[in-house]
């Protein structure tokens, strides 16, 4: 079907406006991050700072060890994701394709976990972490999140949609559970796995409360805590520094999304065709 020319023009126009609306906050973020504090609130709206004030970044680095925090955040997020995948994929497989007594009740318990807000279980989690001697460690930041009810639920739905005939064929070729998961389920569910990974990383990148509660020393603390130092209740914030810190904190994750987005969309399309 051929699109008429004016339709294309309108489409592009609408999309461009949407894109501007989405991008503007980021542009504003970058611009404020490079402004002089006295330039932030002026009568004339200026998108570009008078002079680019890179010193803002020097100043935030001076106030908190952001590179150290960045390293910790990456270790924690990647750590959580790897263990999550190792646990979630077999669990989802069991719920989707195996039969065992109590399956529905156990699955219900998994789903309930999605609905429990972190704050409501913070004291028991704290006590367990303390008992294991993991307060103020990166392991303590990772452990409470490795069993993801949400991931299990998401993958179970995907695994269920994979035709029984594929499983039968794999069995006939002599594949066991693990082989079937590795060679059939995972490749076919890649879009879901990538989506889940993105959600997981974004969520734990932004975790604030749990790291704040259980960590004390800079050696194990994460980026959000450094960012918190620039949000002030009593005086109002120093916006240029806050935005510089925000930019530093969210730049890697934005870059990560930009990179993975391509494979993400590609996977979506190809799997749709093969379906």
């Amino acid at each position: 079907m051929e699109e008429k020319k004016y339709e294309v023009v309108i489409k592009i126009f609408v999309l461009q406006i949407a894109a501007i609306v989405m991008i503007l906050p980021f542009v504003w973020l970058i611009s404020t991050a490079l402004k002089n504090p006295s330039e932030v609130f002026t009568e004339n709206l200026t998108l570009l700072p008078e002079t680019f004030r890179w010193a803002n970044f020097v100043e935030i680095m001076d106030q908190a060890p952001f590179w150290l925090y960045m390293g910790n955040t990456i270790i924690v997020c990647v750590g959580i994701l790897i263990i999550q995948l190792l646990l979630v994929i077999p669990a989802a497989y069991a719920f989707a394709r195996l039969d065992f007594p109590g399956k529905d009740v156990i699955f219900l318990l998994f789903v309930i976990q999605i609905m429990l807000p972190l704050e409501s279980i913070i004291i028991p989690n704290y006590l367990i972490t303390k008992k294991l001697g993991l307060l103020n460690t990166r392991t303590g930041l990772i452990l409470p999140f490795v069993a993801s009810g949400f991931g299990t639920f998401m993958l179970r739905q995907t695994f269920k949609q994979i035709p029984q005939s594929l499983e039968d064929a794999a069995l006939m070729d002599g594949a066991g559970h693990l082989r079937f998961i590795w060679h059939v389920l995972i490749p076919l569910s890649r879009p879901t796995i990538v989506t889940f990974s993105m959600i997981s990383i974004a969520t734990h990148w932004n975790d604030y409360f749990w790291p704040l509660i259980i960590t004390d020393s800079d050696e194990v603390r994460t980026l959000t805590i450094g960012l918190g130092m620039f949000v002030q209740q009593e005086s109002g914030s120093d916006w240029s520094l806050l935005m510089a810190a925000t930019l530093f904190v969210c730049a890697p994750i934005i870059a990560f999304f930009l990179v993975t987005q391509k494979t993400f969309i590609k996977n979506f399309l190809t799997s749709g065709i093969k379906g």
Partner: peptide, 24 residues
């Protein structure tokens, strides 16, 4: 002395309360 930044006033109170309840 290990100075520990604990967030804003509310968060500091929550960190203190959790630590006290947790025996730490």
């Amino acid at each position: 002395v290990q100075p520990v930044y604990a967030g804003n006033y509310n968060q500091t109170m929550q960190k203190v309360q959790t630590a006290v309840l947790g025996g730490n």
